[in-house]
Simulated scan of single mutants.
Amino acid sequence: MPIQVPEALVASLVECHGTDGRVWAEGLPALAAATADRWGLRPDGPPAHGAVALVLPVRRADGSRAVLKLQRVDEETAGEPLALRAWGGRGAVRLLDHDPATGSMLLERLDPARSLLA
């Protein structure tokens, strides 16, 4: 799964985490490839990002659509998978899989036809 890390994400990671953020950003292509291989994912659209996470639209081995979210594990992000698992898709995106060691999360892919309220 070859990816190009958006420069805006690299800049944001450096702003938030300094040199550690840049080093982590440089490892994102390898992390994405290893995680995609482990979970049987293939790319399904251009990458997106927030302030500290890379978000990759993917297809699972069964053809279903999902999102691979890659973010550093720190005190701010460590609880996100636990919260998503607890909410179980009620008012939040569903967590499909999680790798605690890397912080990688496989998430339900949202679309404009479905509301989180439902």
Results as ranks from 00 to 15, higher is better:
residue 25 A to K: 05
residue 28 L to F: 08
residue 24 W to E: 10
residue 98 H to V: 11
residue 99 D to A: 09
residue 53 A to D: 10
residue 31 L to G: 05
residue 60 R to Q: 13
residue 97 D to T: 11
residue 79 G to T: 07
residue 79 G to H: 15
residue 54 L to Y: 03
residue 100 P to E: 04
residue 77 T to S: 05
residue 82 L to K: 09
residue 45 G to D: 13
residue 53 A to L: 13
residue 74 D to L: 06
residue 108 E to I: 07
residue 75 E to S: 07
residue 89 G to K: 09
residue 87 W to Y: 08
residue 37 D to R: 14
residue 42 R to N: 06
residue 65 R to P: 06
residue 66 A to W: 02
residue 80 E to L: 14
residue 81 P to N: 10
residue 35 T to A: 00
residue 41 L to V: 07
residue 87 W to N: 05
residue 101 A to Y: 04
residue 77 T to M: 12
residue 43 P to R: 12
residue 97 D to R: 07
residue 27 G to L: 03
residue 80 E to A: 10
residue 23 V to L: 08
residue 30 A to S: 07
residue 39 W to F: 13
residue 72 R to L: 10
residue 29 P to Y: 06
residue 65 R to C: 11
residue 77 T to G: 14
residue 88 G to Y: 11
residue 83 A to K: 13
residue 64 S to R: 11
residue 99 D to R: 02
residue 78 A to W: 14
residue 86 A to Q: 10
residue 88 G to L: 10
residue 50 G to L: 06
residue 78 A to Y: 14
residue 59 R to H: 10
residue 32 A to Q: 02
residue 77 T to Q: 14
residue 55 V to F: 15
residue 49 H to S: 03
residue 83 A to T: 05
residue 58 V to W: 02
residue 42 R to I: 09
residue 42 R to E: 13
residue 57 P to H: 04
residue 78 A to E: 10
residue 90 R to W: 08
residue 33 A to C: 08
residue 43 P to K: 12
residue 58 V to E: 03
residue 49 H to T: 00
residue 40 G to N: 05
residue 42 R to T: 06
residue 41 L to D: 00
residue 94 R to D: 11
residue 34 A to F: 00
residue 51 A to M: 03
residue 83 A to Q: 15
residue 53 A to I: 04
residue 23 V to R: 05
residue 61 A to H: 08
residue 99 D to Q: 09
residue 83 A to R: 14
residue 98 H to I: 01
residue 66 A to S: 05
residue 55 V to N: 10
residue 41 L to S: 02
residue 51 A to P: 00
residue 73 V to Y: 15
residue 66 A to H: 01
residue 107 L to N: 14
residue 56 L to P: 02
residue 49 H to E: 06
residue 67 V to C: 09
residue 25 A to R: 02
residue 70 L to S: 00
residue 31 L to Y: 13
residue 80 E to N: 12
residue 28 L to R: 08
residue 74 D to A: 03
residue 33 A to N: 05
residue 65 R to F: 02
residue 92 A to V: 06
residue 25 A to D: 03
residue 63 G to S: 12
residue 23 V to H: 13
residue 36 A to R: 02
residue 98 H to L: 01
residue 107 L to T: 02
residue 103 G to M: 03
residue 70 L to Y: 01
residue 23 V to K: 13
residue 29 P to H: 08
residue 101 A to H: 13
residue 99 D to C: 07
residue 96 L to P: 04
residue 53 A to Q: 05
residue 76 E to G: 10
residue 81 P to E: 09
residue 46 P to T: 10
residue 39 W to N: 00
residue 96 L to E: 06
residue 36 A to M: 10
residue 93 V to K: 15
residue 63 G to R: 07
residue 105 M to C: 03
residue 66 A to G: 12
residue 107 L to A: 06
residue 76 E to T: 11
residue 97 D to G: 14
residue 84 L to C: 14
residue 58 V to Q: 01
residue 93 V to T: 04
residue 25 A to V: 06
residue 94 R to E: 10
residue 38 R to Y: 12
residue 45 G to W: 07
residue 41 L to N: 01
residue 49 H to W: 05
residue 60 R to C: 08
residue 29 P to I: 03
residue 85 R to Y: 09
residue 55 V to D: 11
residue 29 P to N: 14
residue 45 G to L: 08
residue 81 P to T: 09
residue 64 S to Y: 01
residue 99 D to W: 01
residue 62 D to M: 01
residue 76 E to V: 15
residue 73 V to T: 14
residue 41 L to E: 02
residue 79 G to R: 03
